[in-house]
Amino acid sequence: MSPPAGDGRPDWEEGAPERLYVVTAGRDRPSRRVPLDLVTLVVSQGVPEPGMNPEHLAILRMCAGPLSIAEISAYLSLPCSTVTVLVADLVDGGHVEVRAPVSATARPDVTLLEAVMDGLARI
């Protein structure tokens, strides 16, 4: 950590281990087992509450539409492991919903697609 800035606060370096420790309250994994990986999609389910830390607020604001853990990590310039802890906190508080991405092996219902195509052809 760098010496305190003129206003008495520490001058945090981006990605400094001390900052990451503070952001996650010293945790290196979520408090509860939430299945999260780099491609897990995160969507806000509520509004920020007073007293939330800045990183939680940023995640809530940026996830109005689905974003992956990897994207959130890039936007916040934080390691994915840190973002995973933060997102798990928000899941625990009911502030975000997480979804697994659609599997590449998942196949659409062919009957439904044919019905849609037939309906469009009649228009």
Rank of each mutant, 00 (worst) to 15 (best):
E71R: 09
I72K: 02
I72C: 05
I72Y: 03
S73Q: 06
S73R: 04
S73V: 09
S73A: 15
A74T: 10
Y75T: 02
Y75H: 10
Y75Q: 13
Y75A: 06
L76G: 06
L76M: 12
L76S: 01
L76I: 05
L76Q: 11
S77V: 09
S77G: 11
S77A: 15
L78G: 08
L78P: 12
L78H: 12
P79L: 08
P79F: 12
P79A: 13
C80E: 14
S81N: 12
S81C: 10
S81L: 09
S81W: 10
S81G: 10
T82K: 08
T82H: 13
T82S: 15
V83F: 02
V83I: 07
V83N: 06
T84Y: 02
T84K: 13
T84L: 08
T84A: 14
T84N: 08
V85L: 13
L86H: 03
V87A: 07
V87S: 07
V87N: 03
A88I: 05
A88V: 00
D89R: 13
D89F: 07
D89E: 15
D89C: 11
L90Q: 02
L90W: 01
L90V: 05
V91Y: 06
V91L: 00
V91G: 11
D92G: 10
D92Q: 10
G93R: 12
G93A: 09
G93H: 03
G93Q: 10
G94N: 00
G94R: 04
G94K: 02
H95S: 13
V96F: 00
V96I: 01
V96L: 01
E97P: 00
E97A: 13
V98C: 15
V98K: 11
V98W: 06
R99Y: 03
R99E: 04
A100H: 08
A100Q: 15
P101K: 08
P101E: 03
P101W: 01
P101L: 03
P101Y: 05
P101T: 09
V102F: 09
V102P: 00
S103I: 07
S103N: 12
S103V: 09
A104W: 11
A104S: 15
A104P: 02
A104Q: 15
T105N: 06
T105C: 02
T105D: 05
A106P: 03
R107W: 09
R107T: 15
R107F: 03
P108H: 10
P108G: 12
P108N: 11
D109N: 14
D109P: 04
D109R: 07
T111I: 04
T111R: 14
T111P: 04
T111D: 14
L112K: 08
L112R: 10
L113P: 01
E114C: 03
E114T: 04
E114I: 06
E114P: 05
